[in-house]
Simulated assay, not measured.
Amino acid sequence: MMPARFFPLIRAAFAALALVAGLASASAQAQNAYGGMATDGDHTKVYSVAPEKNKQWAEMAAIAECKRAGGKGCKTLTTFWDSCMVYARNSRQDLFPGNSVAPEMAAKKAMRRCTAGSPDGNCRLTSLPVCAGPGYSAEDLAAAKRAKPADIEALSAKLDSRAYWGAVAENADGGAVYSDGYPSEDEAINTLLKWEDCKDCRKLLTYKDTCVGIAWIKGSEGRGTRFTALNPDSVSAREASRETCTAKTGAPACVAMVRCSGRAYMDGYKGQDAKSQ
């Protein structure tokens, strides 16, 4: 049996070992504070790695990850350390970076740059921010890998400061002319009224973050022959305008179409390319 006088010495030894292990772990985390990002030749996807030991390893690992995932023409985008990094992409596949010590601030910077450099808006984060460094929680470090497309779109929408306005006007013969996706109400209607096809046009309505159904009696001409209805659901908007047309004219079968303007419709909507019916 070990004499009791040795117990304090043993406890002190274990404490010293634990301290050394903790310092070694912290040192390892500090050394593995780098991240890297790469993309394919068409910017269709951004590939990320973290943590890595140094900048060179992060760069090589990001390229390797791109190739492993089947990317073609893989190239380095950036390396980063003790911070969070993310990219936003627009409809032309241009990429815009955002870097900050705070994950959401990195995303905000990427979205702001994308919006400023994209006339039609339509910016979306390529992932949640990727963080590298000893100061981040396990949740921060795992967020990008765990994120689902809906999570990425939710953060993109939250940080998208751009508006998406649409406008409808009628020309001299009563035909409807429309535009959508503009950053302001004035720009939507003023641009529309300047179009060559919009001769002697007058404004019917402007709309944002919703859909407008436009209905009329087939073959009808003259001002006041187009009837509109607003609804966030594209099919409901179209059918509501048809019902309004029937109620106002008594015609049993008005034709109708629909247009939507808003971030929620970036990826298309029912009836977008359908002919009037």
Rank of each mutant, 00 (worst) to 15 (best):
G175F: 03
A12M: 09
C74V: 10
T78E: 14
A62E: 02
G250H: 10
P129D: 03
S137H: 12
A274I: 06
K75F: 06
G22H: 09
A237M: 09
Y87H: 10
T44H: 11
K194Q: 13
D94Y: 15
Y207I: 02
A13D: 02
P51G: 13
D140L: 01
G181T: 10
G181C: 08
M257A: 15
F227A: 03
A16Y: 00
A18F: 10
Q93D: 12
R11M: 14
L192C: 04
Q277N: 13
M111K: 09
S184N: 08
S261Q: 09
G213L: 09
N99E: 15
A256D: 01
A251T: 03
Y34D: 02
L23M: 13
A163T: 06
Y34S: 05
E52A: 08
G250C: 12
A26Y: 01
L193V: 06
F96K: 06
V20R: 08
D267I: 05
S236Q: 15
N122M: 15
G224T: 04
C66Y: 02
L9F: 13
A176V: 11
W165M: 08
Y34P: 00
F80K: 03
V235P: 00
C254D: 13
M105G: 01
A253D: 15
R92C: 00
T78H: 08
K270E: 13
E239K: 05
C245E: 06
S48N: 12
A264G: 11
V258C: 10
P3S: 11
A28P: 00
R68W: 00
Y265R: 11
A172G: 10
P252R: 02
A251G: 01
A154Y: 06
M111A: 10
A154G: 03
A110Y: 06
T44C: 05
G135W: 08
R162T: 04
V20G: 03
N231G: 03
